[in-house]
Design a protein around this nucleic acid. Sequence first.
RNA 1: GUGGACGUAGCUCAGCUGGUAGAGCACCCGGUUGUGGUCCGGGAUGUCGCGGGUUCGAGCCCCGUCGUUCACCCCA
Length: 416
Amino acid sequence: MSEQKIQAPKGVSEYVPERSKSFEFVRNALIEPAKRAGYQLIELPVFEDTELFRRGVGESTDVVSKEMYTFEDRGGRSITLRPEGTAGVMRAVIEHGLDRGQLPVKLWYAGQFFRAERPQAGRFRQFYQVGIEAIGLDDPAIDAEVIAIADAGFKSLGLSKYRLEITSLGDLASRAAHRVELSKFIETLDLDEATAERAKLNPLRLFDDKREEMKEAMLGAPLLMDYLNEESLQHFKSVMKYLDQMEIAYVLNSRMVRGLDYYTGTTFEFVHELLGAQSGIGGGGRYDGLMQALGGQALSGIGFGLGIDRVLLAAEAEGIISQESFVSDLYIIPLGDTAKEMALKIAKDLRSAGKTVEIAFGDRGLKGSMKAADKTGASYVVVLGESELESSVVELKRMKTGESSSVKIASLLQYL
RNA sequence: GUGGACGUAGCUCAGCUGGUAGAGCACCCGGUUGUGGUCCGGGAUGUCGCGGGUUCGAGCCCCGUCGUUCACCCCA
């Protein structure tokens, strides 16, 4: 009698063969450009002190106010499953004094993140991100490079149906000035309760409303871009200039909104055309006050987070994920127990020489084993039976052509 | 959190106005002794998501629940 089945928790994304191969491929492709630009791995815990996100991400954000997995551990501490990566990285940078050496500190990470949202296409409660952070310098060239690294990852996968949107949120002074004007404007609007509530929390949010009537109403709203001070404006112009020079296409979106409080200055988002409502495949920006807010020095930084799940979805939507199957070099079919012992030994030796070798287990018939070998896509197959054991010579069969040749077991390696 | 759709074998789905389940693919075995991909034959598989209710009787109707999915919201 079987017990009741246990299912995965609601809304998690998980990857099993064959698709796990595509996931691995996408993840590595997104990491590679960061490595080539000199970013180094930082491996962090998936849970942190809840306070880190309250202060780092911001109490007023949806992420912190209603989407965090927070619980008390056995010592009565408030723990939260990380909903994003930047805060944790900053915490670790401060804790380990990484910012005491040469700047910028350049780090990359990859892993799972958690947000208790209603699941939807491309939106999961546990999801995967690849991210980088460049901390300590305010050079606009770094902004451009960070963006270029994300873009390089998408391009190396062959993605083309996406666009890069950029804007500048300016510094604190610019934002404060704009916020006053924007709030005044919003007061002239006739809003429903929920929307008014959102406006109170963060008036910029209204730029993101998807309803046509709201888009129209916001048409005349004052734009933050027009309130940037000279320094912010120059910085942003430089970023655009560098992007132009690298021939990275972008569109200026002065109505872009980001949901995390720490963003300042250069802010960007990659949007894929084929994905539906959850179309952001990556995003990031500069954060001026974050490190200080977490008890560190007053250093600026910039980084991004790329959604592996969504990039995979996008790649599948564009039909550019190659489903080349797992291929082993050699498939050994042992007939009988002595042969099985021999097979294990041969496999072990060839593997230590770098070959991918599989063995037919379970004493199934030769025909079945051949079928199994065929399915794995093995390049070569060898049958180990009485005569082979006696002569120490096997028929090395090349699966593609069906041809085979006699090879000494001892010298198998040089024929693979 | 709010609203809509959906939930039948591993996968994709069929199942007429309620009468206790089927196809294709996949899987396993075989087609004379030890060689795959085609073909032929045979076979296993489901408490019809779960729990209640209506009914003589429910995969089909009703309620609840869990899950998936789409949109809002939010974001990767």
